[in-house]
Every structure is written in structure tokens, then in C-alpha cells.
């Protein structure tokens, strides 16, 4: 290496005194977790305007369609109706958070786009959390719209619909975390798309239909899908006297799955970024 004395250089990073002892130059600043997460979040949110609006429309349209279809089978105001409405609403979260995010990260990894983030001094968690948070936010209008439409269609009370303010972020964390982890772990982008689709199909088939009529094996499978707990929590609140402890328990499962899956996703990101 060529040694240039600091005073021949104009002010700038090279004029910074070298780290004591080692002879190594001082490193640039690290991006801190929260500001960089906010930056990623904002950037991802702005992508919605360019690329995601049609997909959000599809997500909502799909759930509303399911509600209308199920109206022919399930009586208004019934116990089953609560699950249909809750399931359709959470489906929007599964579609966007799980399916679309898995596709996004799968494509980013496949195309080499992760190099951009990997050569910036940003914590892996910031990239994963920022993207997952933005995708969870995309789902808010669709989820609320579906829930309101479902309540009107099935004659359910809307008094506790505020619970969506907890269901969407927590189910969103669980499903978007899972989507991010699947997208980053899948060796090929097509496989990420496939896994995302399968996850969403699981949430659709196992979440929208009431559990009481399912065979035991399917019910066990249903318990393994994280979206189920979001559906259960939301469905509970339509009752006259909701069991709030149960609601909190279900939401806690969502939060737990969210923490684990986002941690796995952050690890998968690091692994995918440096090969």
C-alpha cells in the first residue's frame, strides 16, 4: 500500500487519523438499525405506487369473492360466518405478506439484487424488517375493506373490528417473516414463488373454512399454519362475549412466530448475501 501523509490530502475521509496501533484506516459509519429500517420501509412502500397496486387489488378482490361465494353456504350471523369473515380478511395478509414477499426476495436473490444491500453497512435485520413491515402495511386497506364488507354481508357486529389494529401487524409479522425466510432460503426464484403460493393456499384452504368440520389430520395441519392464529383471534371478537385471554393467546402465537421467522429471515439474508 502507498503511504500518503495526511496533510497532503484535502479534508475528507482519508484525512481522518488512522486507527491507533493497527495501521488500518478508520471505517465509515455503520447504518444504525432503526434509521436504516425506516429507510428500507419507506423505499419499499414507495414501490407499491409503481408496481404493487394491481396486486393489492387482486388480493382484495379475491377475498371479497370468497366472501360472496361462502355466503351461499354459510348462514349470516352464525359461528361459521365469523370464521369465514376472519379467514378472508387474514387471507389478504397471507397473499401479500407471504406470497408476494417470498416472490420479491426470491427474485432479488436470483437476480443478484441483494448485492446492493450487502455492500452497504446495513444490519440484515433492517432490510428484512423494513421490507416485511412495508408488505404488512400494504395489506391494511385490503384487510379492513374485506372485514367491513364481510360484516355487512354476514350481519356480524363491527364493534370489535379495532382488533385488526393488532391482528394485521402481528399476523403480518408472522406471515411476512415466513415469506421473507422462504424467499431468501429458496435456491431458485421459481421455488420461492412456488413456496409462497403454497403457503398462501394453505392459509386460504385452512383459514377460511370453519375448523369444526375438518378431519383431525387436517385440523393438525391447520394448527401448524401461523395465519390460523390470526384468524382465530379475529373470529373470537365477533362473539357477544369474546374470551380476551384466548384472543391474546392467539396473538401471542402470531408474535412468537413473527419473531422466530424474522430472525430466520435475517440469518437467511446474511447467508444469501455472502456466498
Amino acid at each position: 500500500m502507498t503511504v500518503v501523509s495526511a496533510d497532503v490530502l484535502p479534508s475528507g475521509p482519508l484525512a481522518v487519523p488512522e486507527a491507533a496501533g493497527t495501521g488500518a484506516a478508520e471505517l465509515g459509519p455503520k447504518a444504525r438499525l432503526w434509521p436504516s429500517m425506516a429507510a428500507v420501509y419507506r423505499a419499499q412502500l414507495s414501490r407499491a405506487r409503481v408496481a404493487r397496486i394491481p396486486l393489492l387489488f387482486v388480493a382484495t378482490f379475491q377475498s371479497v369473492g370468497i366472501l360472496i361465494m361462502m355466503r351461499g353456504v354459510v348462514d349470516g350471523g352464525s359461528h361459521d360466518a365469523q370464521f369465514v369473515v376472519a379467514g378472508s380478511s387474514v387471507l389478504v395478509v397471507a397473499y401479500v405478506g407471504l406470497n408476494l414477499l417470498a416472490q420479491y426476495f426470491g427474485q432479488l436473490r436470483g437476480s443478484g439484487g441483494l448485492d446492493h444491500y450487502a455492500t452497504l453497512p446495513v444490519p440484515p435485520a433492517a432490510v428484512v424488517l423494513g421490507a416485511a413491515g412495508a408488505y404488512a402495511s400494504f395489506t391494511v386497506p385490503g384487510t379492513v375493506l374485506t372485514a367491513l364488507f364481510g360484516c355487512v354481508l354476514f350481519g356480524l357486529p363491527m364493534g370489535n373490528i379495532w382488533i385488526l389494529a393488532a391482528v394485521v401487524p402481528l399476523a403480518g409479522a408472522a406471515l411476512a417473516g415466513l415469506g421473507a425466510a422462504l424467499g431468501l432460503l429458496a435456491p431458485r426464484p421459481e421455488l420461492a414463488t412456488l413456496l409462497g403460493q403454497l403457503g398462501m393456499s394453505g392459509a386460504l384452504l385452512l383459514g377460511v373454512l370453519p375448523a369444526d368440520r375438518m378431519p383431525d389430520a387436517v385440523r393438525f395441519l391447520r394448527d401448524l399454519v401461523p395465519s390460523t392464529y390470526g384468524v382465530e383471534a379475529f373470529a373470537q371478537t365477533f362473539g357477544a362475549h369474546p374470551d380476551w385471554a384466548l384472543v391474546l393467546g392467539d396473538l401471542a402465537v402470531c408474535a412468537g412466530v413473527g419473531v422466530v421467522s424474522l430472525t430466520v429471515a435475517a440469518w437467511a439474508y446474511r447467508r444469501a448475501a455472502v456466498r
Partner: peptide, 14 residues
């Protein structure tokens, strides 16, 4: 490396 250098790769997908 990320704190010393800026990298312009061939991909812009991010």
C-alpha cells in the same frame, strides 16, 4: 468492506 467502499454492480433490481 461495506464501510470502506461503494460498489456499483451490474444489477439494478434492488
Amino acid at each position: 468492506a461495506a464501510r470502506i467502499l461503494a460498489y456499483l454492480g451490474q444489477e439494478s433490481s434492488a
